[in-house]
């Protein structure tokens, strides 16, 4: 329904344009500030694989946006995960700003991410519990011709649908990561994976199966791997906020922009919180072959 709102907003702006509306550049350089905050992106799961934590910094809004990994990275930090039984899992910086461990978690344990930056500031995540995740019962592909809005052509898409066990747990939140590739061997979940959450799905185990993703039919991609993961409510809210931040560029007819807060705080300075999120998940994966 968000699209409807955009259509209306566009209709309004179009009608304004008929009334000699015009635009000018408006300098905001002196208004915007560079907060230079720490940004944390990381996942920790029960899969026996490597786990990655990315550390970077914010840029002023007015700074040129770098391509891909061009954001300033945070090097030389000490990164560990501690659990509720006093165990510590250390991370090693393998490339600037990328911290890796081969350790993995256990469902039911509570994990905290700890970061000490090279300038001595200490950050930690809120304790995150690794929740149980239902197994993927079935992963299927079907093909459909989709009409393209306002055009008379169609597009053939591969639809990945997923069926799961019913967990009967209340207040469970899930997220799915998926990636397609030519080989059935996939690397561990990192920032190159697609992710989605579906509001209201699998809450209290009520839902059994649904369409997870649509891929444009591309013969070079033969396999799709899907991770079904459990996340905390706070993580769910974070990802929802990321996707609903949306476009805020139509002036008075757009909704107010929302700040997105994660779960990382500075242990000694309330105002110096970090952005981003450290998710802790129980995972279950499956791979399907495209025809």
């Amino acid at each position: 329904m968000k699209r409807i709102h955009s259509i209306i907003a566009i209709a309004i702006i179009t009608s304004f344009a008929l009334l000699s509306a015009c635009t000018d550049r408006y300098p905001i350089g002196e208004l915007a500030n560079n907060s230079n905050r720490l940004v944390v992106e990381g996942r920790f799961t029960n899969a026996t694989q490597t786990h990655t934590i990315y550390l970077s910094r914010t840029l002023a809004y007015t700074a040129p946006t770098p391509n891909g990994s061009g954001y300033p990275v945070e090097t030389g930090a000490t990164v560990t995960i501690t659990d509720d039984q006093g165990n510590t899992i250390p991370f090693n910086e393998t490339s600037p700003g990328v911290y890796i461990t081969t350790g993995s978690g256990e469902v039911g344990r509570i994990y905290t991410l700890n970061i000490t930056t090279s300038n001595g500031k200490q950050y930690s995540s809120e304790p995150e519990k690794m929740s149980e995740v239902p197994a993927i019962k079935n992963l299927k592909v079907r093909y459909e011709d989709r009409a393209i809005p306002f055009e008379d052509t169609t597009n053939r898409v591969a639809i990945i649908s997923i069926q799961s066990e019913d967990l009967q747990t209340s207040n469970a939140y899930y997220m799915w990561y998926w990636k397609s590739g030519q080989s059935s061997q996939f690397n561990t979940i990192d920032s190159s994976w697609n992710w989605t959450y579906v509001p209201g799905r699998l809450i209290s185990g009520a839902e059994e199966g649904f369409d997870l993703a649509e891929l444009s039919d591309d013969n070079t991609k033969n396999f799709v791997k899907v991770y079904q993961t459990s996340i905390s409510q706070k993580a769910y809210d974070f990802f929802q906020a990321l996707t609903s931040q949306g476009n805020n560029n139509l002036g008075p007819f757009s909704t107010p922009p929302a700040p997105i807060r994660g779960n990382i705080i500075n242990n000694n300075d309330e105002k110096d919180f970090a952005l981003g999120f450290f998710t802790v998940s129980g995972v279950h994966s499956a791979t399907v072959k495209l025809e």
Partner: peptide, 10 residues
Amino acid sequence: LPDAKYQYSN
């Protein structure tokens, strides 16, 4: 006013 930007999950 947006004041900063950062990268998360590409």
